[in-house]
Amino acid sequence: MEVIIDALPYLWEGIQVTAYVFVIAIILGFIIGLIMALFRLSPLWILNWIAKVFIDAIRGTPILVQLFFFYFGLNSFDFISLDRTTAGIITVAINAGAYFAEIIRAGIQSMDKGQTEAARSLGLTGTQNMRYIILPQAFRRMLPTFTNQAIISLKDTSLLSVIGIADLTQQGQVVIAATFKAFEIWLVVGVMYFIMIYLLSLLSSYLERRFELR
């Protein structure tokens, strides 16, 4: 018990790093996903192609390889110097972005065509239709799927300990190296991840109720 209490300040620091990396990465990931989804649906073949290559490349490779690529790979150029946290955030953001892109694209495509026709027949432009009619409805429907991806991305942040980011997983390792209490500490770390994910799903069900589909 004492071991655990002594470990808490270290683990709390880790939680903060995990939360920080996760929040920034998920926001960036969402923006990337939205842009790539719109590219994917664009009639311009070049945008379409960029999005397709991006999505396929990210979904077709392990996130650990992506992390090594962004941290060690890119840093091997003299003119690039990414610190660990930046490389870590980029990795999780881009990875989430590729999955978000597919979720958003599917969400937009599943909308009733009549909505677009009504909007366009009123003289709204394609952009206005997306902004006021399609995306608000599609996002509400996609919330549960977004939450799923967010949970996956939160778990993915634990991989960042591999390049030495002081996240919850890394802090757990540090404490264990000093105390040799692997069983207790990994159990506590697991519970802490579980609580974070639980809070995330609470937030999601709150948002689902708040923006209930009418």
Binding site: G114, Q115, E117, A118, A119, S121, P136, Q137, R140, L213
Partner: peptide, 14 residues
């Protein structure tokens, strides 16, 4: 300048 009314109404539900 051209209003259109559809069989399925197509009101914006949100």
């Amino acid at each position: 300048e051209v209003g259109m009314v559809f069989q399925q109404f197509n009101l914006f539900p949100h």
